[in-house]
Design a protein around this nucleic acid. Structure first.
Length: 419
DNA sequence: TCTGGGGTCCTAGGACCC
DNA sequence: TCTGGGGTCCTAGGACCC
């Protein structure tokens, strides 16, 4: 058996932990640059807010229903996620943290347990310790655990926990899950499936996996088998990232090369910090820049891939290479809205192969990098940085409605006044 | 005026080998 | 008029996830 535990409306729930006034009210959290809706309370869902709605298009709804709108506060959400995961991972030796708000737990041989009681206990403990509401779904495969969670989350009568104990119970229930809500079936596949009469999870489960393999692909074939109760996916180890991307939309458009360079340098620096945090080296990087695709102004978008002479985790090499890439693709006369840096093909530092004829730069500046990382870790992200990153940050994203970093910053602790 | 930021995997097709 | 059969590796693009 697998359990899928997932946090309800996670970002909204995090905001509610520190501001109980938000309970029972419509609340939404926005993407970076205060652009789109990326989390909604149940009340906001009921009013009609959709995932990914540009908020400026829903201003009428916001005013009419007094919706509470927040910028995203990833320092807070990340820390709250760590707390939830630390608790949940104690419930099984075999777990997989699948996303910021989801974890799979494996329960070999637990079919005969009273899973509902067990799930409720998990729920109660997380609620009490971290104040985050969760939903728990049990099933004999990961895909069915996901499907069980679909019911746990949507129907209050289940009390946040739903279990597929035996395959006999599964069939009937699957009819109630539209095929596009099956884990692994997105919009494009759903449209194609609908056209051949496959409307819900039950229909999909009736298909022949070999046929699906031929007609679609191996991923969907696995989904079909999993819905039929044959496990194809197991608990997976968390691997280091193969690619590390840092990109942002800008608060205002940038036309000036030097400002764009500051943005790209900042992204390259952040990516380097992440790279070292997972103890890897990158073989190359990609830089991209683009104007706003929604603008009527002249459009331009371009990217370039550059390989390092030798795999590196040295910020200075990465910064210089990113700058070189930017110079190659930058064109004057455009109003840039977004840029990004992707570190490519990372290797664990134990692996990288030496080159007889090239000086080993892999560890060059290692102590400088380690020291910078340590200072920024201890005193805050921008305590020391490269001058190339600039000090004005003309490119900064908009974040007009951000709550304090309650749990990760001493200056932003919640203050409680006693009467 | 204002439209996110991260990731992964699979497949088809081209270049190349003998 | 007629032009093989078998492989590998790499990359871009498209699908998916949160």
């Amino acid at each position: 058996m697998f359990a899928l535990v997932d946090c309800n409306n996670f970002y909204v729930s995090c905001e509610r932990v520190f501001n109980p006034n938000l309970e029972n009210k419509p609340v939404v959290v926005l993407s970076n640059n205060d652009g789109c809706v990326i989390a909604r309370s149940n009340e906001a869902k009921a009013i009609g807010f959709k995932m990914g709605d540009p908020i400026f298009q829903r201003r009428d709804l916001v005013i009419k229903h007094k919706v509470l709108v927040f910028s995203s506060n990833f320092a807070l959400y990340g820390d709250m996620s760590n707390r939830v995961m630390a608790l949940l991972s104690r419930y099984s030796p075999d777990f997989e943290i699948y996303s910021i708000d989801e974890i799979f737990l494996s329960y070999d041989g637990f079919q005969d347990w009273n899973l509902l009681e067990y799930g409720k206990k998990i729920r109660q403990e997380v609620l009490q310790a971290v104040h985050i509401p969760i939903s728990v779904g049990f099933g004999p495969t990961k895909t069915l655990a996901k499907a069980a969670n679909y019911f746990a989350k949507r129907y209050p009568l289940y009390g946040g926990v739903f279990a597929f104990n035996a395959m006999t119970e599964v069939k009937d229930k699957l009819r109630h899950i539209p095929v596009e809500n099956v884990w692994g079936i997105g919009r494009k596949w759903a449209m194609q499936l609908n056209q051949i009469g496959i409307m819900n999870a039950y229909d999909l489960a009736q298909m022949d996996a070999t046929m699906v393999r031929k007609q679609f692909n191996v991923v969907m074939a696995k989904t079909v088998l999993e819905l039929q109760g044959t496990p194809c996916l197991g608990i997976e180890e968390v691997e280091p990232r193969q690619n590390i991307m840092v990109s942002r939309s800008f608060g205002q458009k940038i036309t000036d090369f030097h400002r764009l360079r500051e943005a790209v340098a900042s992204f390259a620096t952040s990516a380097s910090v992440k790279l070292r945090a997972q103890q890897s080296f990158a073989c190359g990087l990609m830089v991209f820049i683009r104007t706003s695709p929604f603008s009527t102004e002249p459009q331009y978008s371009n990217s370039i891939v550059l390989k390092f002479v030798k795999a590196t985790a040295n910020s200075m090499v990465i910064l210089k290479t990113a700058e070189q890439g930017l110079k190659a693709i930058f064109r004057t006369g455009f109003a840039y809205k977004k840029a990004g840096v992707i570190l490519l093909d990372t290797l664990l530092n134990s692996i990288g192969q030496s080159d007889l004829f090239i000086e080993d730069t892999k560890l060059q500046n290692e102590s400088l990098m380690t020291t910078m990382d340590a200072i920024n870790e201890k005193y805050g992200k921008q305590t020391v940085y490269f001058a190339l990153c600039g000090i004005q940050k003309a490119w900064s994203s908009r974040q007009d409605r951000k709550t304090p970093r309650y749990t990760t910053c001493w200056q932003e602790l919640l203050v409680v006044f006693a009467k």
